[in-house]
Design a protein around this nucleic acid. Structure first.
Lengths: 345, 345
DNA sequence: TTGTAAGCGTTATCAC
DNA sequence: GTGATAACGCTTACAA
């Protein structure tokens, strides 16, 4: 008790209890109940732990065991309302298994992605969940992970060979488009997302497949790539409303874009679904609270997050050199018919 | 090279470069350029580092320096759209300074809060940002932090003595209420948030202060506590619409509640703002995309997050035993007048 | 039943 | 200019 240590360590507990640090460690070890040890000793140690407010240092344990019980969660931007449920899914499963989650927002910027991977590797996270549907060109920095055997699970279709969880964006969008076509729509515009996102690409592809299969031509300027936000939907929908052949339906790459389209239609004095139908994608909570309620493709985002974390946990249990299964886990989507769609008039 | 090590460490680099680990460490150390060292040696080491893909282990460094460069971010639920910008503010400042952010969603559950604090302390995070406006009763687990000198910064008004960042919820809500009163509204209902949240409490208090000062009586059943979500706003607004003296204005504790009120009004065949005015709080992105656009109190959420992280960084630079300033940093709010408010008819 | 000591991957202090 | 080595806080053989 000569110099005041910064914090309390196992040594302080040992001193307070009058035992060796090994004995303290035994009290704390998981198989503690089985271990033979005098009851009186155990109690002395437990008393010291409680009095000092001691908490074992997980860094030291991690160093020893080569396991940090920490995972990185890499995504474009948590501000996109699609992500919070995904984050919750990952975090809830993680914390239930004693894992921590380090959040990394990349803004789809390859430099930020690379920088985050650097710090995740330096802290030796056990694994990483990466979301956002990246193209191969942006994924170079992932090679880093091999050296430190960092497990990787992808959410969405990425251009890489790894375990992944996703939905079938092509099929889902195709079905949504066919639904509109089935109601008699011919002039269907597609309001898309960023070109660098495989999710945006796949949804556009599904739209195109349905249009082609029905022998329909995409309206001139009828495919607009943009951002996954309201502003993008507002601007692109607004532009199309001014065109000669006004679309009778808008198929949107996500709900935020659809909300922007709602605003553009309202500002043009048009009514949904009488003057134009609108279909979204994701089924965020707000989709049932806009009026008219939004017809959209429900994505089990929370479950996707859960499943991604489960795949990571499974990877931790495998032999270090095991080849991971790379067949994507596909979760089902569902077209939720609400009030924003009607046959064209 | 007899047995294959799991990962590459400083020892492998030293062996590959034919130097001691001390020399490798010097190449990596920050003041490296100044240090006297043969150019040829440095290059040999750098080559080995590159070839092996070596990354120094930050756990080992943290153990030595007693600094993990990691902070915890504790909040009720990232799914509430109010939080993502806050998270980004914290994370952007954190990553710019080399810090990582561990995300912890508590769902306002004291047990979850306690469990997260346990793991944060065990990993020896340098500090914690806690958001959500907790009452003293739920904050008992924070005493843990003292033992390990974990710095704490609060976002919002918490019942504890710590540096904090917040807005003046009472004054802002009072002003918003006065604005409605000034337009001639008398029957103003308040759609509130959870009772366990100081934010919800303060907003309700601001409303009551304005009503009392104007000599107005709160309409019967006109103060409804609930959740910070659309459903709560929808249900409570709907209930009030069925009452004898229908409110001419709804003051909502946040924007999500306001969106719910919009839906309830629409379903009742009423028009905003002709039949009822609606005021929200937060100014989430969607507020400018609903129609009519939502009049609301803009909260600089991103800046709040930034400032919270800056306070934490400042605390790290202080002497370990320094008494932290506990005067809250108050950030300004602004009433954004949009289209959801009109004088009563 | 308990203690001693090696080692996890670093950095920093001291020799040489 | 470079190399040993102690130390950070812990777990786990191995001794006693």
């Amino acid at each position: 008790m000569s110099r005041s240590k910064a914090t309390v360590s196992i040594r302080d507990v040992a001193a307070a209890a009058g035992v060796s640090i090994a004995t303290v460690s035994r009290v704390l070890s998981p198989e503690s109940p089985q271990i033979s040890m005098r009851q009186e000793t155990r109690e002395r140690v437990e008393k010291a732990i409680a009095e000092l407010g001691y908490r074992p240092n997980d860094l030291a344990r991690a160093l020893l065991h080569q396991r940090t019980a920490t995972v990185g969660l890499v995504l474009p931007d948590i501000s996109n309302p699609y992500y919070p449920p995904l984050v919750r899914g990952v975090e809830d499963v993680a914390s239930a298994h004693g894992y921590r989650v380090v959040l990394c927002n990349t803004d789809r910027n390859p430099d930020k992605l690379a920088a985050y991977l650097e710090t995740l590797v330096k802290t030796r996270v056990d694994g990483i969940v990466i979301a956002g549907g990246y193209l191969a060109a942006d994924l170079g920095s992932l090679t880093l992970l091999r050296t430190y055997r960092t497990k990787l699970v992808a959410v969405g279709r990425h251009e890489l060979e790894h375990p992944s969880v996703r939905i079938d964006n092509v099929a889902a969008t195709r079905r949504a488009t066919e639904y509109l076509i089935g109601l008699g729509h011919r002039e269907i515009a597609f309001l898309g997302g960023p070109e660098g996102s495989t999710t945006a690409q796949d949804r556009r592809a599904g739209y195109r497949a349905a249009m082609a299969a029905a022998g329909l031509v995409e309206p001139a300027g009828g495919v607009q790539d943009g951002e996954f936000d309201e502003r993008s939907g507002y601007e692109h929908a607004g532009a199309l409303l001014g065109s000669a052949r006004r679309p009778t339906a808008f198929l949107c790459a996500n709900d935020r874009i659809a909300f922007g389209a709602y605003a553009a239609l309202a500002d043009a004095g048009l009514s949904v679904p009488r003057d134009a139908s609108v279909v979204g994608f994701d089924d965020v909570p707000m989709a049932s609270f806009v009026r008219p309620t939004l017809t959209t493709v429900a994505v089990p985002t929370y479950e996707i997050g859960q499943e991604a974390m489960r795949l990571l946990l499974a990877a931790f249990d495998e032999a270090a050199d095991a080849e991971p299964a790379t067949d994507p886990v596909l979760l089902p989507t569902r077209l939720v018919e609400r009030a924003s769609v009607a046959p064209p008039t």
